[in-house]
Design a protein around this nucleic acid. Structure first.
Length: 589
RNA sequence: GCAUUUAUAGCUCAGUAGGAUAGAGCGACCGCCUCCUAAGCGGUAGGCCGCUGGUUCGAAUCCAGUUAAGUGCACCA
């Protein structure tokens, strides 16, 4: 469906060109003075310079040619040269009727869908998720949903950290504790057990112990490096152990991500890229991209226009071992081969910007990706506590994601019990989870992704103001009215949306037309916070309308039916929007 | 040291391609439940948009400088 802004712009283009002015001046925007008008065109002001006329004269001239009486209720030129427009209520009602009957709510699918891979910067296996993983998951999930909604082929890859010394550490510690396991028996030739020798909580305990031991005990560290080497070079017992580690971790990770309503299309990890490394390194050497510098193999990625020193991208360490860069580049090779994506989006901590700049330049310079594949770094800021410093537990440690979610759900549960005494235990529990998630996600996504933000549980879970719960409450209210309406026997009749009868109704209707452009621009700019602010505006517009309109008790059946249809549309649009943010609304709260 | 990001109300944040009177929420203060959920709605107070200069008819927005805070600068990931 054509957007209202475009419909108006087309009319203005006609008017501007009819007067002999360049159509570039015909740009229309939403009004920044809602008290004066709904849409505005400021083009007469810049045009005044080019055509050496008074802006107000140009505006009046254009207005003369703007002969579409059905589109506007009012149009006027105002000093110094603004063109102020108010949309026709009839046109608006008809437009909303069209949106209502469109299963995509007026949002067109994109004409040329792209294949886009989202990299979530990978949680490590054998380590519990902590708050640092929260933003990547929440932002990535939202971007993925928005992209898919628009019509792109979006592939989310969790991209686990499952390679390197950490695996060797776990194996070493395990060997110390249970030396009799078959995995350590070199002469063993049978099938390894399918049951894991450890649980997730044991695994999570083993890793930090091993890690700290290796820092103090050089022999221990050497053993771990040895184990890592063996693992990476075909020791079958260790590889069987790796599989157990992966399986146990992934099961646990999936459970955690499910609680966040986050899912991935791919559960690949760094280990999957390893087979691509040898050929890639050879290719870089053979083509003269890679050179030796201080013993290490590097690709120079400096450019003439650089204002800063960009260190070369290291491919192999001076001891010949691969490193993070190697794996990330090999992953790009793998992804190009398997999916040939048009775009790769890395949703990672913004502190890694320089690093990814190097990797991207290297990938481009060495032609691992073609010119038509876009590499995009979407860096997010740090989640801080109320003190403005990185979020920690009360004791000062790293907060486990699980604990964070639990404490928020408890918070919601208590509030719910306070406010709604008639609710059953079961419903209170499940609803508090849904509402709690909205609090966390909305709290995160309503900020610009690149900025640090203050994670304030009290504020996010608050029942008041610009919060997830407020949005859900609005949806629940609509649901409640619609339920009551059908309880009273309504719903069968043919419904048409009537022209707005009040300011608040028209304001609500205008909000309802914006979904399509908001979704598009929020994906273009990879900015979910734009959807948040839209949802908030819409919820406000609805609540204002709700407050002064008695819907169920309206005597005129046509008017009542029109409002019910309007509410149904509002509900759909709100639900669609929060779905793009990655949460949902309960039936009651 | 070099680079880079940020600076908007007491607090947390928006501010859409330079445009009309810079907006929300929280907190403060004042109103509104016989009525579809008051987790709501209306209102008041609160701002040299870090600072200085420049471009422009017009700047929170663009440019230069400056101050403060954060972050990053090859064998970690």
């Amino acid at each position: 469906m054509k957007k209202i802004l475009d419909i108006i712009a087309d009319e203005l283009i006609c008017a501007f060109t009819a007067c002999g002015y360049n159509e570039k001046y015909a740009r229309v925007t939403l009004s920044n003075r809602p008290d004066l008008c709904e849409y505005q065109c400021n083009g007469a002001l810049p045009a005044a310079k080019e055509y050496k006329k008074a802006p107000i004269a140009i505006a009046n001239e254009v207005l003369e040619k703007l002969n579409v009486s059905t589109l506007f209720d009012s149009k006027e030129a105002v000093m110094p040269g603004f063109i102020n427009l108010k949309l026709s209520t009839e046109f608006l009602a008809g437009y909303l009727d069209q949106i209502s009957s469109d299963w995509r709510l007026g949002c067109d699918l994109i004409e040329h869908p792209k294949t886009i891979i989202i990299d979530y910067g990978g949680p490590n296996v054998a380590k519990p998720l902590h708050v640092g993983h929260l933003r990547s998951a929440i932002i990535g999930e939202s971007i993925k949903r928005i992209g898919k909604f628009i019509g792109h082929n979006v592939i989310g890859d969790v991209h686990l950290g499952d390679w390197g010394l950490q695996m060797g550490l776990i194996i070493t510690e395990l060997k110390l504790r249970q030396p009799n396991l078959v995995y350590f028996d070199k002469s063993f030739e049978g099938e390894y057990p399918t049951k894991s020798p450890f649980t997730i909580s044991e695994l999570e305990e083993i890793y930090p112990v091993a890690s700290s031991k290796s820092k103090e005990d050089t022999d221990y560290k050497e053993a771990a490096m040895e184990a890592t080497y063996l693992l990476q070079n075909g020791c079958s017992g260790y590889q069987a152990l790796l599989k157990h580690i992966l399986k146990v971790s992934v099961t646990d990770l999936k459970k955690n991500y499910e609680n966040l309503n986050v899912s991935f299309d791919l559960w690949k990890g760094e280990s999957d890229a390893q087979p691509y490394i040898p050929d890639m390194v050879k290719y870089m050497k053979d083509n003269g991209y890679a050179t030796i510098s201080n013993g290490a193999l590097v690709v120079d990625v400096k450019e003439d226009f650089d204002t800063k020193e960009i260190p070369p991208c290291m491919i192999l360490k001076s001891d010949g071992a691969s490193l993070y860069n190697t794996t990330d580049l090999a992953t790009i090779v793998e992804r190009m081969k398997l999916f040939n994506p048009d775009k790769l989006i890395y949703v990672v901590d913004k502190r890694q910007e320089l690093y990814f700049e190097q990797v991207f330049r290297c990938a481009r310079k060495t032609k691992l990706v073609g010119d038509d594949t876009e590499l995009k770094f979407l860096g997010f800021g740090t989640m801080n506590g109320k003190d403005g410093k990185p979020f920690k537990t009360r004791e000062g440690g790293v907060m486990r994601l699980e604990n964070l979610i639990t404490s928020i759900n408890e918070e919601m549960y208590n509030k719910m019990k306070e406010n709604r005494t008639l609710i059953s235990e079961e419903e209170a529990l499940s609803t508090s989870k849904i509402v709690g998630l909205s609090a966390v996600k909305y709290g995160d996504l309503s900020n610009q992704t690149s900025k640090d933000y203050v994670f304030d549980i009290d504020r996010f879970t608050s029942f008041e103001g610009d919060t997830g719960p407020y949005i859900l409450y609005t949806i629940v209210r609509i649901k409640s009215i619609l339920a009551k309406y059908s309880e009273l026997g309504g719903g069968g009749e043919h419904m048409t949306i009537n022209p707005a009868k009040s300011e608040s109704e028209k304001a609500l209707m205008l909000e309802l037309t914006k979904l399509s452009s908001v979704v598009e621009s929020s994906f273009e700019e990879l900015a979910p916070h734009k959807i948040c602010s839209y949802v908030y505006d819409l919820a406000n517009a609805f609540n204002r309308f709700y407050h002064e309109t008695k819907i169920i008790s309206e005597e005129d059946a046509t008017t009542r039916a029109s409002w019910i249809k309007l509410l149904t549309l509002a509900k759909k649009i709100l639900e669609t929007s929060i779905n793009l943010l990655g949460f949902e609304a309960p039936e009651r709260m």
